[in-house]
Amino acid sequence: MLSLYLRPMINPCFQGVKLASVLAVVAVFIWIVGDIFWQGLPKINADFLFGTPSNAGRDGGIRPVILSTIYILAIAILATLPFATLTGLFFSEKLFPLSPIFRPLQRFVDILAGVPSVVFGLFGNTYFCNYLGMGYSILSGGLTLACMILPLAAKILQNAFSSIPNEYVSGGEALGLSKFTIFSKIMIPSVLPQVTAIYIICIGRALAETAALLFTSGYVMRDPESLFDSGRTLSIHIYDLSMNITGGNANAYKTAFVLVIMLLLINYIAHITIRKWTRLSHGR
């Protein structure tokens, strides 16, 4: 009986809770972004973006930091995509049957996706920096990031490949298409939208990561002259300025502002590019 009286209340209550949680999320977002904009935006100018840092980063610009970030990002993405694609294809069993011996390997990929980034940093330091002799360098940092992103990217691509209808593959086989043609002309175009997701994850990780990169790409603030130079990313710069350098807060905020803008910009560019590719291969 009671529930009968309460029932008309449930919907408005639910609506209220829903609205409140949406507002809470929006408020947090506005607070963070607003704070960064408020503190960072008025002081940003070309000298800051294109200048070199001085006085341990308290003064001057952040050009070397931006450059290092872009390089590390590019290496991470370029190294991740081919491996993630092949791993995803392998586990999706769309083109090649997977021998049961290999199935448990999927677990490893899942576990790897949950390993904290410090562990990857340690691994990168041991393997890329020391064992392969790359030292503290942009290359080591990018490759370490790639290792970090790889499990998740492979998982996303595996799901994307698995969701391709079997009819596309058997239709291709029935036309006598080679596996490579089926893969490159039919399967790859179908997973392009998920590649966007991977880009965005890579970018997010690469821009946000500090722990793994401290061990591998180091925190030198000079313009990188080659991929074997050490270089710090924006996040490390922010971390360093706000934690280790007294009086670095102003520049930390400005850098954070640049970081947020860069994040939005790269997301947007990735989005546009992928949409263009998709349109080219899927038709308008």
Partner: peptide, 18 residues
């Protein structure tokens, strides 16, 4: 061989492209 043996399936599923 498969070139010479054309197949049409029950569900019309052209490739997801142009």
């Amino acid at each position: 061989f498969r070139r010479k043996v054309g197949t049409v399936f029950q569900q019309p599923m052209p490739f997801p492209t142009t």
